[in-house]
Design a protein around this nucleic acid. Structure first.
Lengths: 210, 210
DNA sequence: ACGCAATGTACCGTGCCGCTTAACACTTGG
DNA sequence: CCAAGTGTTAAGCGGCACGGTACATTGCGT
């Protein structure tokens, strides 16, 4: 390796932190990832290091990402990168959108859509949808490219995907390819609020190289 | 390591793929990550492996995430098939997840994460996160690949992105590139519920390595 | 007070593998 | 043809990723 590389001793600190958060002992973690307890201890104290498989097992068992363990700690000084990219106000920067300022689209008697992003995202839509009470089942179903993720916040939403129907209560979530015919409506007496994320299909996403 | 460990030879294939996509030669990549060209060749052909620092350097230079290189290849291949496979039960089909069955991960005093999708999505995470009242500001920030979308359902969540801080109330949403350092915590007295969608960087988006 | 179980740690190895240098075979172009 | 690039192979060194064991400490229960 080159000589200007980073010190990787903080990895041990991260592992120890994550292990403590998970309420796991050194031996327990060691058993789960298939190494000895002493080795875990050595790594956590910075006098040793995990191999790639071992570290990956750690990330899996402690349910943290590789980057959470490996990404260098906050330089704390002004980040490199484009000068002037220093964000001072998250709202002005278009990162945070206040609830009162979500542009909403009212479609007649249909649901009210609110876009939760500032600008138009390239390949995705992040939406809050409010379905008024007692709306009828739409007589047309929807099919488009992409993949759809939704969760019902309040109320009861009736969903029909591929001809199958069920009712989603508060907290229930749904994920499916948007190419399947689907329609949603609110047959209950209460208003329904839901969060939707619609992602376009990625260009090169057929099969991960044979 | 345990005896039931995975074959890690696919990592080499992924590296080769990513390197080819970046239009980089073996020697060039070797020079950038600070190892010999022959070693890169050996790793790519499965007769060798990178150390953690080396692999991390590879991910940085080729602008891919650790998980893109290390996550085991598509075990959930039972992808919802062509429209025509008549779905009878949306829950059994893995399309609908009931609120009571969301696998949740409690990280000590940290927030509670609930995965809203059935299987592991390939390039995305759809999550509900509950932050307990009066949690301290995390002492490490997060940086990873991808783009992040969030909306606060109830409570008040303090967010810090790129060093700028603000508080999100119910209905407020936030969108930003996950490569920016960020951390969230709940300094209020009430519980905070939020919905997060984390999308990996699209493979078509190349890196501007000059 | 005593054990005793469980925690994390120190010490002492050793075999493996991460990595190197050197040379190889092959393609391209001038 | 040679020169300069590509990826590949072979042989070997040395560090470190790991295991085993013993230890100091805390916190039980009796």
């Amino acid at each position: 390796m080159a000589e200007h590389e980073t010190q990787w001793d903080f990895v041990g600190t991260r592992v120890r932190q994550a292990r403590a958060d998970a309420g796991m002992t050194v031996r327990e973690l060691a058993r789960r990832i298939g190494v000895s307890a002493s080795h875990v201890s050595q790594v956590e104290r910075g006098i040793g290091a995990f191999s790639v498989p071992a570290l990956y097992a750690v990330a899996r068992e402690l349910d943290v990402s590789m980057h959470a363990l490996l990404d260098p700690p906050d330089p704390s000084s002004s980040r490199d990168g484009r000068p002037g990219s220093a964000v001072v106000d998250l709202v002005e920067a278009g990162i945070v959108q206040r609830a009162s300022e979500h542009p909403s689209i009212m479609l007649g008697s249909g649901p009210r859509w609110s876009r939760l992003t500032a600008g138009g995202e390239e390949n995705a839509e992040f939406l809050e949808v409010v379905y008024a009470p007692r709306t009828a089942r739409p007589d047309v179903d929807i099919r488009h490219e992409g993949r759809e993720y939704g969760i019902v916040i309040t109320g009861e939403l009736t969903v029909e995907v591929d001809g199958a129907t069920t009712t989603l209560g508060a907290g229930d979530s749904i994920v499916f390819d948007s190419t399947r015919p689907h329609r949603f409506w609110n047959s209950s007496d209460g208003e329904v609020r839901a969060i939707w994320f619609v992602r376009d299909t990625l260009p090169g996403e057929a099969a991960p190289h044979a």
